[in-house]
């Protein structure tokens, strides 16, 4: 036997790290919840949480902050997966919050920013103390500096200059009443790692991640689907293109990319060759300013 055998592959390493994080939270924090958007990252998180506590069921519920701007494929997927796992689903609804007057629709119709008060209200109502999120550090430069255990004060705010140092595999989950921790088990994963893991684990993801024909129009150099949440304006002709989604967010804001990748293997090939980041290519919400993500996170965003 050679010593060489005692080396984990990069996916095994990342999996072991994420499983450790899930267990640490379950052991130290009283009321965790897993934020599930139906996107590929939160789908991978569900698998990791399932593995971390096997053969016992995962000891926390799943929460979806529902903007009402959903791709139907994603909602179907959410309901099917939650039923398979037998976990509780908490839905925090943005349309409902608009009706109740908690938040008001923004002039541009985007519900990205107004998700935050809805999320925070649900956290308070259910007294959640730890929220698992699927954010990765390679996604965005403010996230590159965020901890795995990211402390939030009793207003849900992130203070980037006041973060707890994280050493070795020791995480500090101590909080006072009303405060919470956002936990990011996928911090060290890249987009490519996520897809390699989806391939290795044969994880199903919503069909919109694979190439399909869709009626789209062009805006700001991005391709948007013509759907009930996002209508072309004058001078934005629609056409049918072969596209897929690299990220799944608010259906009014998330753009598709031209693609022929209709299998996992082809998606991996495509991502390995691409010269644009997933958020840069597809997310209108991140284009507001250099520090758009940092600002939203300070307000309590995911």
């Amino acid at each position: 036997m050679t010593i060489h055998e005692y080396q984990l592959s990069q996916l095994d390493y990342l999996e072991a790290e994420a499983v450790h994080v899930f267990r640490e939270v379950a052991a130290e924090l009283e009321r965790p919840v897993l934020l599930f958007s139906g996107g590929k990252d939160s789908i991978v998180m569900l698998r990791l949480a399932e593995k971390a506590f096997w053969p016992a069921p995962m000891p926390f519920p799943v929460m979806h902050v529902d903007t009402g701007h959903n791709f139907p494929e994603v909602l179907e997927f959410r309901d099917r997966r939650v039923a398979e796992l037998g976990v509780n689903l908490v839905v925090a609804s943005v349309p409902d919050a608009i009706e109740r007057g908690l938040v008001a629709e923004e002039p541009n119709g985007s519900r990205n920013r107004i998700q935050t008060p809805v999320l925070l209200e649900a956290v308070e109502k259910h007294r959640f103390t730890a929220l698992f999120g699927g954010a990765r550090r390679d996604e965005e430069k403010a996230r590159a500096k965020e901890r795995v255990f990211s402390f939030r004060d009793d207003f849900g705010q992130w203070d980037p200059k006041n973060q707890r140092p994280e050493l070795w595999n020791l995480y500090n989950g101590r909080i006072h009443l009303g405060e919470s921790i956002r936990v990011f088990p996928l911090s060290n994963w890249t987009e490519l790692d996520v897809w390699h893991y989806i391939q290795r684990e044969e994880i199903a993801v919503p069909s919109i991640y694979y190439a399909h024909d869709r009626e789209v129009f062009e805006r700001d150099g991005m391709l948007f689907a013509d759907n009930e949440f996002c209508r072309p304006r004058e001078g934005e002709p629609t056409f049918v293109a072969k596209v897929r989604y690299r990220t799944v967010g608010d259906a009014s804001l998330t753009a598709a990319v031209r693609s022929d990748a209709d299998t996992v293997e082809k998606v991996i090939e495509e991502i390995a060759a691409t010269r644009l980041t997933e958020r840069g290519a597809t997310r209108g919400d991140d284009r507001v300013s250099e520090a758009a993500m940092e600002d939203r996170k300070k307000e309590g965003y995911f």
Binding site: E140, K141, A142, R143, A144, K145, P160, K161, E290, A291, E294, D295
Partner: peptide, 9 residues
């Protein structure tokens, strides 16, 4: 590329 926070930039 690496200095992502507003204060750093």
């Amino acid at each position: 590329l690496t200095d992502g926070l507003r204060a750093e930039r």
